[in-house]
Design a protein around this nucleic acid. Structure first.
Lengths: 139, 139
DNA sequence: GGGCATTGTCTAGTGTACATAGACAATGTA
DNA sequence: TACATTGTCTATGTACACTAGACAATGCCC
């Protein structure tokens, strides 16, 4: 069942001490929910002010995240109406995106190794993510 | 003509159009080389001015990357002498680092899925990275 | 239809980080 | 001792993240 049983939108978690900008953390987390299908087409997101209040940031910060996702085709934004999840055609994979991804992945994994994280555990986590985030298309 | 051409193979590549700061790209790539053992203890890195000239950036930008790695215990920096790779004790894994890693990994993989990248190919790349970066530490 | 609360958007203002520029200080060497 | 080489420091311009608060579109209730 829905863990957010109060009828309100899910409360995301952000890390104010992270070097990753808050609006990107929000967009990133929401994108994961969209990709995995936990947020489906037609779903309404909380208003920028509601989510901002939940997170303790300014509503413009949330608006920036929403606009980022709208630009990627995930959301429809209309003033006075809110944010709705769209049905989105999957874009063609381009080689630039893949190169960028690989560079970032290398950096991330190298940092994990440098920090002494356990490789087996990390492999398991990665496979779990892969299954979850691509589950909508392989079946 | 290529502004970085100096007749030698590039030590590393950076992407000026990326949103990732240049000094972090440099540190990230070098960290991968350090973790994998391609840069061993005792090795000398190019001077900040040499590397900066290769990359087409200011030497202070490279110096910032070097200092980042020195702070992590990878390098010894002495003015007049250059940068040398240190023997470094692997730190204990702490849960904060792991949580941060997982958040970033989720964001990265979700973005890859959103961009239409192929999951099998990505899994293979991940395993290759894992083997390379944890070489000698695990079966 | 009128009034009004709700929603996303816009323009400004402020603080911080990134990158550059160039001087400075420590080290090695001829 | 001279001098070139090296990392470090202070200053400066620019872009970005976040906040602040007004504005405009929408839907709802009477």
């Amino acid at each position: 069942m829905n863990p957010h049983a109060n009828g309100r939108a899910p409360v995301l978690r952000i890390d104010l001490s992270s070097s990753v900008p808050v609006y990107l953390q929000i967009a990133s987390r929401l994108r994961a929910l969209l990709v995995s299908g936990e947020l489906k087409a037609g779903h309404r997101l909380p208003s920028v002010r509601q989510l901002a209040a939940d997170l303790g940031v300014h509503h413009n910060t949330v608006a920036l995240a929403y606009r980022e996702l709208a630009k990627e085709g995930w959301l429809e934004l209309r003033r006075g109406r809110g944010a709705r999840v769209l049905r989105r055609a999957e874009p063609k994979a381009d080689s630039g995106a893949k190169a960028e991804f690989l560079r970032r992945l290398e950096g991330l994994v190298a940092k994990a190794a440098a920090d002494g994280l356990d490789p087996e555990s990390i492999s398991r986590q990665f496979e779990a993510l892969r299954r979850k985030l691509w589950k909508g298309k392989s079946s």
